[in-house]
């Protein structure tokens, strides 16, 4: 049973600079990386394949254009997950991919997955957009069942047993393969690859394919606004007693006590 792990090239939102005064968002300058929760999905894929003796492959469809910088980052992100133990990676990239919405991307990914894999693992949400739409759409495109928010996965023959965490209860479900499962950050602790594994990862198969959206997207981003959050950012100094005293005073003046 071969496993595909969906790894998104995510903007590093921690590093993304926005200007609250001009409303400018410096997307081009921000680095991209494999999302943190995708490392959890990778870890789970590696654990499962070690038990089952099958292959696990990363599939990335980049939506940040195909500039040299983005290509290099995409390959670095894939090297990172390959070093964790995946067997290979597919990178789909091209100019114009930025316009693809989840409808378009899901259809393109399904082409890559249909007939080749029986289990697709993804993150509950990507690091930059966090919509969780893509794995759900991919499942629908493939006609496979979809279970989100997995905190444990066990393979039992042609089924997987998935424990998942919802707001008001925890659920254990049995899902018939092939299936798409998205995982949470709590499912495991992603291993940190050693230097030799990173060196070896660079020699693993990385298959790059060209991409241009085959379908028209169903939505268009009109604008991106920067929400204004004004904070005073006053650091209160002094010894413990003084600081506590000054803080209480300030909060009284704010009228929030």
């Amino acid at each position: 049973m071969d496993i595909a792990v969906l790894v998104k090239q995510s903007l590093d939102v921690q590093e993304l600079r926005v200007d609250q005064d001009t409303g400018k968002i410096y997307i081009e300058d921000a680095p991209t990386k494999a999302g943190d929760i995708e490392l959890n999905a990778t870890e789970e894929a590696v654990r499962l394949k070690e038990k089952l003796g099958d292959k696990a492959i990363a599939v990335m469809l980049s939506t940040w254009g195909a500039s040299g910088k983005r290509q290099k980052e995409a390959r670095e992100a894939l090297t990172r997950v390959l070093a964790m133990g995946l067997d290979g990676a597919v990178l789909i990239m091209g100019e114009g991919a930025e316009k693809g919405d989840t409808y378009v991307i899901a259809r393109a990914l399904a082409e890559e997955i249909r007939g080749k894999f029986e289990l697709v693992l993804a993150a509950e949400g990507s690091e930059d957009n966090f919509s969780g739409l893509l794995p759900a759409r991919l499942a629908a495109e493939l006609g496979w069942p979809y279970v989100a928010y997995a905190t444990a996965i066990e393979v039992e023959g042609d089924h997987v047993k998935v424990t998942r965490s919802l707001e008001d209860f925890e659920e254990v479900v049995r899902v018939k393969l092939p299936a798409v499962i998205s995982v949470t950050q709590e499912i495991n602790k992603p291993r940190v690859p050693k230097l030799v594994e990173i060196v070896k990862a660079k020699k693993k198969p990385l298959d790059q394919k060209d991409f241009s959206p085959p379908d028209e997207p169903k939505l268009a981003i009109k604008t991106l606004k920067v929400p204004k959050v004004e904070r005073k950012q006053i650091v209160i100094e002094g010894d413990v007693e003084e600081v506590a005293e000054k803080l209480v005073q300030a909060l009284r003046e704010e009228g929030v006590l």
């Binding site: 903007l11 939102v13 921690q14 993304l16 926005v18 968002i25 690091e127 930059d128 957009n129 966090f130 169903k218 939505l219 268009a220 981003i221 009109k222 604008t223 991106l224 606004k225 920067v226 929400p227």
Partner: peptide, 18 residues
């Protein structure tokens, strides 16, 4: 036409949906 948070809360996207 909808609005939603994106980029981990650093931006709000205004989107036009078919």
């Amino acid at each position: 036409v909808i609005e939603r948070m994106t980029f981990g809360g650093k931006a709000v996207a205004v989107e036009e949906l078919n």
